[in-house]
């Protein structure tokens, strides 16, 4: 794993991977959304609004996967002190927060015609909103600790890493919320090895999830490259100032 600790080696891999992930992701999402809108049938109970599934589910998956990435990268940063782990965690925060917000917004839009309300304070929706606030807190904390470190005030990314690790407790709560508490939100339709969704809905959904995940990966790589460039700029400025 430490073989990828060298930023130059990482960049040589990330540069070709970024457009590959982005282009394949965009193609898959375009096909999935086309099939979802024009080919998949309307649902017996939800009617045409079932098509929101192809945006809402990938957004929910990536909102939770984003924080899981932050937690894993934070653990690697704290335990193995991998130099790129903190950068990977910070790079996952903005896209994770975006997809979390998209999940909340599309869920609210979907709730109005199906539940008759834009919002209810039940376990699933509230825990997802808490995740969004955790993202905002993490972004602020990581940004502040990076600025402190750059200014030589002793701040490190360890505080953000601990926050990222502790915040991961919310991810299983979101996942199990529909089982633990009464909710208007339906329980999980897909679990390991089985699915309650008809293949007509499942195929475009699978493509949308993979496609959006590839786009998420490309965005994380872009943000990692940006953060690495910013660190190099900072180091170079300090060298120029000292000279």
């Amino acid at each position: 794993m430490h073989g990828f600790a060298n930023p130059t080696r990482f960049l040589s891999i990330a540069r070709p991977l970024t457009p590959a992930f982005m282009v394949s992701g965009l193609i898959m999402v375009a096909i999935a959304l086309f099939l979802g809108v024009f080919n998949a049938p309307a649902d017996r109970l939800m009617g045409e609004t079932v098509r929101i599934l192809y945006i809402h589910v990938p957004a929910a998956w990536l909102g939770m996967a984003g924080w899981t990435s932050i937690a894993i990268a934070s653990l690697v940063e704290l335990v193995w002190r991998h130099p790129l782990a903190g950068i990977a965690a910070r790079a996952s925060a903005v896209p994770g927060a975006f997809f979390c917000a998209l999940c909340l917004a599309t869920g609210s839009i979907w709730a109005r015609p199906t539940w008759g309300t834009w919002w209810v304070w039940d376990g699933r929706l509230t825990s997802m909103l808490v995740l969004f606030f955790l993202y905002l807190g993490y972004i602020a904390l990581a940004d502040a600790s990076q600025k402190d470190a750059a200014a030589g005030r002793g701040g490190t990314s360890r505080v953000a890493a601990i926050f990222g690790l502790v915040g991961a407790v919310n991810v299983p709560i979101i996942n199990r919320s529909v089982v633990w508490w009464n909710s208007l939100h339906q329980p999980a339709s897909i679990s390991i090895g089985k699915s309650a969704i008809d293949p007509a809905f499942l195929w475009p959904l699978g493509m949308a999830v993979i496609g959006f995940s590839l786009i998420f990966g490309a965005i994380v790589l872009m943000r990692m490259r940006t953060l690495l460039a910013d660190i190099r700029i900072e180091a170079r400025m300090r060298r120029l100032a000292a000279a």
Binding site: L33, V37, G47, E48, T49, R51, I52, I55, H56, A59, F98, L102, A105, T106, I109, W110, R112, P113, F212, I215
Partner: peptide
């Protein structure tokens, strides 16, 4: 129902 679908897709595509 299509209005809600278009709202969700518009938000998702424009946001991404």
């Amino acid at each position: 129902q299509w209005t809600y679908v278009i709202m969700a897709y518009g938000l998702g595509i424009a946001g991404t």
